[in-house]
Computed example of a mutant assay.
Amino acid sequence: MDLNASYTSLVTVGDSFTEGMSDRLPDGSYRGWADLLAARLAARTPGFRYANLAVRGKLISQIVDEQVDVAAAMQADVVTLVGGLNDTLRPKCDMAMVCGRLEEAVERLAPSCKQLVLMRSPGRNGPVFQRFRPRMEELFAFIDSLASRHGALVVDLYGAEVLGDQRMWDIDRLHLTAEGHRRVAEAIWQALGLEAEDDWQAVLPPSVAPGWTTRRTTDLRFAREHLVPWIGRRLTGRSSGDGRAPKRAELLPYENEPLS
């Protein structure tokens, strides 16, 4: 591990996970692991540049068609690519297509940067995710294969017990909390060969199971605020990212802000 590794630029590609949902800032915008990672890298390197092309709701074909060539043209030191999970969570999913498009993305991005970073995305423990785990694990096995063939790093978030803990997930049950995003940033930081700040895989202390009333209240809130709107978008062919621009569309110097 090279604890003196130096990186001058970062470009991130993907969907809501990389955009930063649900790590909310006071103004209602999202921060997320990519912003946290950029801030830490910028603190080491004057003039550090950062672009985040990720947009919530994007499927792998949209990521490849809309983000990959833009990212490759930026010639960054580090590029992260996370995509395909939204596809696996749909009732019908063509895994051959998903893997093919992901391979296309890696083939374009790997030669364009000094280090490509791929991830095995975290999964929340619970009955809903159990249904989709076979697809997810097929995707992750393919990611391992791609990384081996193209010299990419793989950050195994899926294998981290703590990131399956329900307390690491927002009320929507699809996106990590601020603490979850902080741990993802630390995991990537360490994968890049930089000195660990803490143990990102440290498990949470035991919790007291909520009572029946609390669980039902939480379930009703989840259904009203997230599940029903999600079903509505699926039925009408809409996406939460329709018409939304990337949060940082250009590779520009990152003005470091407090991380708290």
Results as ranks from 00 to 15, higher is better:
I171M: 14
I171E: 13
I171K: 14
I171A: 15
I171R: 14
D172F: 00
D172T: 00
D172V: 00
R173G: 03
R173L: 12
R173S: 07
R173C: 08
L174W: 00
L174K: 08
L174T: 07
H175P: 12
H175K: 13
H175I: 00
H175N: 14
H175S: 14
L176E: 01
L176K: 08
T177M: 14
T177H: 13
T177L: 14
A178M: 10
A178C: 10
A178N: 09
A178F: 00
E179C: 06
E179R: 13
G180A: 10
G180S: 09
G180M: 03
G180Y: 04
H181M: 09
H181D: 02
H181I: 05
H181P: 04
H181R: 12
R182G: 04
R182S: 08
R182Y: 00
R182Q: 10
R182F: 00
R182T: 03
R182K: 13
R182M: 07
R183K: 10
R183N: 07
R183L: 05
R183A: 06
R183I: 04
R183S: 08
R183T: 04
V184R: 11
V184L: 15
V184A: 12
V184D: 06
V184W: 08
V184H: 08
V184I: 15
V184K: 14
A185D: 03
A185R: 02
A185H: 04
A185T: 02
A185K: 05
A185L: 06
E186I: 01
E186R: 03
E186N: 02
A187F: 04
A187V: 03
A187E: 03
A187N: 09
A187Q: 08
A187I: 06
I188A: 05
I188R: 02
I188P: 02
I188S: 02
I188N: 02
I188M: 12
W189H: 01
W189C: 03
W189R: 03
W189V: 01
W189D: 03
Q190R: 15
Q190H: 07
Q190Y: 01
Q190K: 14
Q190L: 09
Q190S: 12
A191G: 14
A191K: 15
A191L: 11
A191P: 13
L192G: 07
L192Q: 05
L192I: 05
L192A: 11
L192R: 07
L192F: 06
L192E: 09
G193P: 04
G193I: 05
G193K: 07
G193R: 07
L194M: 13
L194D: 06
L194Q: 09
L194A: 10
L194I: 01
E195Q: 14
E195F: 01
E195V: 09
E195P: 11
A196G: 14
A196P: 13
A196T: 08
A196C: 11
A196S: 15
E197D: 12
E197V: 06
E197G: 15
E197M: 11
E197R: 15
E197P: 07
E197Q: 15
D199T: 05
D199C: 13
D199M: 11
W200P: 06
W200R: 10
Q201K: 14
Q201V: 03
Q201W: 01
Q201M: 08
Q201P: 03
Q201E: 10
Q201S: 09
Q201N: 09
A202C: 11
A202Y: 04
A202F: 07
A202M: 12
A202K: 14
A202Q: 15
V203E: 12
V203I: 09
V203Y: 05
